[in-house]
Design a protein around this nucleic acid. Structure first.
Lengths: 206, 206, 206, 206
DNA sequence: TATGAATGAGAATTCATTCAT
DNA sequence: GATGAATGAATTCTCATTCAT
């Protein structure tokens, strides 16, 4: 709907998947339509037939990508009862979603860096859904006297920022980390982030 | 010498400053030499005279950008005595550096997203210096029984990731945050991050 | 049969009408099959089904267009007795035909400008019929001592050129004419052309 | 000035000349930038460097073309004293200008056919200058009782339309004219047009 | 140092046409 | 007859880089 006229077809899906990878890896400007065509074995004109333009293709990719992540995370917190389980589930689900689809954090960081210049509204709204979910958890925790008051956005940025950065930097890290062996798995890192945030937020009764 | 042939001059400085902005805003591929020339009023050939190539210009920009940040942060923790003060200073200094030069987090996120494809070694080393500084603090804290054991990289990612994301997303945020009034200042957010991390890491004697 | 394979049908007629407009407005090269399809609501492949190719479509359009005009003009002079009435009728009929179907003069001028590159033979023959009709009138007038001798082609060009130019330039004229109020109706202009030509050709007895 | 930034250089002149020919011969849409580059031996990018876009190039060509013609014609009538000599000179000069630069009538007819869609304002103004010159002549003749009253636009169309059509159709004519030998020279045709118009306009004292 | 001009190698987009259903 | 999908071959335009002055 709107201008993103995604005509269903295997070809379109094939293109979109490959394009999402390329956009995540090389960015919008670094992604080359010829290469996408070559990579998918699809004629360049077909890409334009299905998506209208590079921008249109990008928007289709972003919308699908971010709605997928938002759905996964929100689905993961729904069945949880306690505030801490919800927080745990939120972080774990986001981490898993990002890890399984590392395109998302890559694209997210790039878009953030350019103030979302190319980001379609629909993709932005998915991020809003996530933030809203987190906000609900934090407010409930605060109301019940379990969590210290804090700006949801701060927590959101800490979760999304740290995990995205970590996952995205996996290839690069071997060069920055002081020692390769110091590298830890995403699971471990997620665990640490989750603990740190929960410890940091927990109301400590004296 | 190396490859970064920065012949000092007012022109070169002018170019580099504008280029840093453009690289941060549009990325390496999205930055166009013609536009840089137009924006600075400098002849395109002059840019090549001063920096050799787009890549050379980029590296000069990155090196300056990141060494500045690393120097600031490390200078800020040096005079601190207690582990907590050092941690505090680290976070505050990084936040201030990023806030004063928002090009840095933008470039950082972009580079992370593309696995540091265009990042010169010298710029990477500056990031390593930062991580090493943080590691030193955390290890000392752990040795003294003040901090829980944690991977320095985790903390690094939380600090750098959350603050970078926050600062960089300032323009975009009005669209993502659920309510504009929920937007908080960088100082407040930094404070919250600092508290949360210190609370989360502090060893709690029962 | 020939090359103009016009399979009659409502669809074909619809296409041809819209195509004639587009060819007249944008020229052969400027007319785009996709746009024609969009404008008519007909599937692009259908156009090819009915007309074989863009060139085939063009030829069908041209033939219809020019034979219509030639028939109208020749039918108008047939019932006239005097040479002057015939000349009058010729000019008036051409003017009316061109006015009712301004596609014709537009296409005519374009084709002339490109040496009739795309013009099918059948359409050219219609123009020849017109010229032959005019020639017959002029020769008869000359034989009877009523008209000065002149090349029929000269008169033909004056009639066709001036009226075509005038009719076709109606939209543009508001910009060229020195004053909008100077703009006159096609009928008036035709009248003036007719008078001027007849006055100019009339043998003046002393 | 304006957007038509014609950076002076031999190359630019070379390009513009060849482009004018191509635009006249093939029309705007039919003119291919690659061919122009090949024809001139100039790199394609140079064309864009000098003229910015195909449209920009077109506008530069049109402006030069039409101002040349207007200048020639107006210069030719200036030294004439009598109204009839001025009229004669106008027609002869336009004919010669069109004959020497047959690009002009071709382009003119094409532009008229598309309502001047691509015609820059500056080129239109040149045509206005011409029309204004003719108007001045006709009004003076009328005031002196030498010429019948007539709309200047009618005469303008007869002159420009007939001569343009004639000159432009030279190649095509062999196919339309009833007999090749009936073809007459531009000079003869111009003479006939000139006589016809002057005879037709002359006030005949009884 | 500075600059106007030039260019090779792309890169996005278009368009007439075809084909399977 | 009709249609969605596909495609090869252009075609316009871009961009980093170079060069002569």
């Amino acid at each position: 709907m709107s201008e993103i006229t995604k005509k269903s077809s295997k070809t379109a899906a094939l293109i979109q998947e490959a394009a999402t990878n390329m956009f995540a890896t090389y960015g919008f400007d670094g992604t080359i339509m010829d290469e996408l065509a070559a990579k998918t074995g699809v004629n360049k004109a077909s890409i334009y037939y299905h998506f209208g333009s590079k921008q249109g293709l990008y928007e289709a990719c972003m919308t699908t990508l971010f709605s997928g992540v938002a759905n996964q995370v929100l689905a993961a917190i729904a069945p949880q009862d306690s505030v801490f389980d919800q927080l745990s589930a939120f972080i774990a689900a986001f981490s898993q979603a990002a890890y399984k689809s590392p395109n998302m954090p890559a694209v997210l960081m790039r878009e953030m860096a350019s103030s979302g210049k190319n980001m379609p509204k629909s993709a932005r709204q998915q991020m809003q859904r996530l933030l809203f979910g987190l906000k609900t958890i934090l407010e409930e925790g605060e109301r019940k006297g379990l969590l210290k008051p804090i700006q949801p956005l701060t927590v959101h940025m800490m979760i999304v920022g740290s995990l995205s950065l970590y996952i995205v930097s996996e290839p690069l890290r071997r060069g920055i980390a002081d020692a390769p062996q110091a590298d830890i798995s995403v699971a471990e890192m997620t665990e640490e982030v989750s603990n740190l945030i929960q410890n940091g937020l927990k109301v400590t009764e004296k």
